[in-house]
Amino acid sequence: MKTRSRGAASDWASWMAGACEQARDPRLAGFYGAFPHDPSAPVADLPLIAIDLETTGLDPARHAILSIGLLPFTLSSIRLSDRRHWVLRPPTGMSGESVRFHNITHSDTEQAPTMDEILTDLLTALAGRLPVVHYHPLERRFLQRALEQELRQPLRFPLIDTMELEARRHRRGGLARLRHWLGRPPASLRLNDCRQRYGLPAYGTHHAVLDALATAELLQAQIQHHYDATTPVGELWV
């Protein structure tokens, strides 16, 4: 399997080192300090954490995070009992159009904590683990915005995006060009469609922890099929 050297890898390492020194909030300093930022570390050795957000829409400026699902895992095992799940109360004035879609009702969110109330727990849960998501722009933008509002400092970190790993094969490689030339539609990169290609079962409705589980399993499959345990994490993260 052909892998590409990612220019971003070394950039992330130096950026993270600087961010750690400049962090004013002790929680943020702790987060950066524990972050596994060595790009040459073999992926198999890394503690990982799958993250999935359920949001009321796609625009972080207008929409809110409804729930966060976290699932710590490694390439050899996913322990379901380690999962974390928060339902959040959106800031007033945020649109709630996708509330019903996520099976989260207004009464659920009315009783729920706000982002600043769970921030310490969230950063503790993330500490020392490399995040894994499916479609990183959404997760990254929403997390950044929410945390920056609370911490008054930018929060940026590398992560592995299972959709991006899939796109490397299906949207950019020779295979994709061949499909395009034959007039076939590009391979779907939706979570369940990606899973199907690796013989993983289809899971039910959208839910933060279930999607995090689906993402974690997908990464295990992708690494076994296209990489191996010794692949440096710098080749994988974005």
């Binding site: 095992s77 379901l80 690796y198 993983l200 589980l213 499959a221």
Partner: peptide, 11 residues
């Protein structure tokens, strides 16, 4: 279900 650990194995 709560106690389950999950792992993927390639063919």
């Amino acid at each position: 279900a709560e106690a389950v650990e999950i792992a993927y194995f390639r063919a």
